[in-house]
Design a protein around this nucleic acid. Structure first.
Length: 374
DNA sequence: ACAGACCCTACAGG
DNA sequence: ACCTGTAGGGTCT
């Protein structure tokens, strides 16, 4: 049965120059947005934790450089709440063009001829961000996308049907731990990351119990954001298997709203050396190392060379350094290699034939017949 | 410290 | 049409 979806409403915010959906939703930051090519609709399931921990469907379309419209399907959501959530999800509190003009252009000559192209950093759900980026190690975007959808389809809760596709929530740590095995994840194409996912799910379930928390997002937010320094947050995240400095930084930036954090991957590393001539002296590396004396996990996992690059780029770009990174990353690989053609994602998704776990009656959302505006 | 190994697969390139 | 090689938003041992 198809989900009952609201009519499209305009986001009451002029996104001109601030947000281009195609440069944000499918370039290796979020991995579960599906593009319906004929209509240009993007849709996915997501949670609005402040309202309910059950997921709903969100549909977006950009009709114009300055106009984004949204529709949704969830019994408890109101359009005001959804709009507020989208404002937060897209971090529209931050003025990209203003940051470009008043910060990056002033401290970095490279940004004089780099346009922001509507690339923004999202505020995603922390647990999904963590799992997604564990999947990202030594991997390409199209397979990460496939894996994230695989997790939802096999371990998530059915949310509803939209555009002929049955949609599932992103699974909780319990759903993965209780219904999944390493073998099964390997069969789903996770490779060696299967073990990382299972061990992290197990550890997160245990951590929640230890801290008396019910939900994954609560654990990650409380153990990292609340009164914690970035360094301590990263130390906490890196306790999980499959989480090194780069993955931890991605979670901090895209899941925990730490705008200054610059995840350094091979591409950013290349940019740092090629365009910024960043190299560390022995002395600088030694100083960095001593700073991690009291952080045993970080000390063990960090790559000092890359950490030096991360720091240099933060010093160059400042408060929104992570956003600057996002823009340069997109410029470097987003428009070629990184952006798996949307059609391929869709096609691959439909071709996929994997076992699907039975739906939990209690959590299954009863949704009525579709009434989608054309 | 530091290579190598690690799962898988979409692409090139022949 | 096949075939082989390579690299992909790293992490672990």
């Amino acid at each position: 049965m198809a989900a009952q979806v609201t009519a499209f409403k305009r986001l009451e915010y002029n996104v001109c120059g601030e947000l281009l959906l195609k440069n944000v939703l499918q370039v290796g930051q979020a991995f579960r947005w599906i593009l319906e090519e004929e209509t240009g609709h993007y849709y996915t399931t997501m949670m609005i934790p402040t309202i309910s921990v059950s997921s709903g469907i969100v549909i977006l379309r950009q009709t114009d450089d300055s106009v984004v419209e949204y529709a949704y399907s969830h019994e408890k959501w109101t359009s005001e709440q959804v709009e507020r959530h989208l404002f937060s999800y897209f971090r529209l509190d931050i003025r990209l063009l203003e940051v470009h003009e008043k910060e990056w252009k002033l401290t970095d000559p490279n940004f004089a001829h780099v346009s922001t192209q509507g690339v923004r950093i999202l505020a995603q759900e922390p647990w999904e961000t963590l799992v997604s980026f564990i999947c990202s190690s030594n991997n390409n975007i199209s397979r990460i996308t496939k894996m994230c959808h695989g997790l939802a389809e096999n371990f998530g809760t059915q949310v509803g049907k939209y555009c002929g596709t049955v949609l599932y929530s992103f699974p909780t740590s319990e759903q993965i731990l209780e219904n999944g095995t390493e073998d099964q994840l390997r069969k789903l194409g996770f490779g060696y990351r299967a073990k990382y996912i299972m061990e992290t799910a197990k550890a997160v379930v245990a951590e929640k119990k230890k801290h008396g928390l019910d939900y994954d997002y609560q654990l990650l937010e409380q153990m990292t954001t609340r009164g914690q320094s970035y360094e301590m947050s990263r130390e906490y995240l890196m306790q999980f298997t499959g989480v090194g400095p780069k993955v931890a930084d991605c979670v901090c930036l895209m899941g925990l709203r730490m705008d200054h954090v610059v995840p350094v991957d091979v591409h950013i590393g290349r940019i740092a050396k090629r365009d910024y001539n960043i190299t560390a002296t022995k002395k600088e590396l030694a100083e960095l190392k001593s700073e991690y004396n009291n952080l045993p996990i970080t000390r063990k996992k960090v790559n000092l060379e890359l950490d030096h690059i991360r720091r240099q780029l933060f010093e160059k770009w400042g408060t929104y350094a992570g956003w600057a990174q996002g823009i340069l990353f997109f410029k470097e690989v987003g428009s070629t290699n990184g952006s798996t053609s949307e059609g391929k994602i869709k096609k691959r998704k439909l071709e996929k034939t994997t076992e699907v776990t039975p739906i939990d009656d209690k959590t299954f959302l009863k949704l009525k017949v579709a009434k989608v505006e054309a």
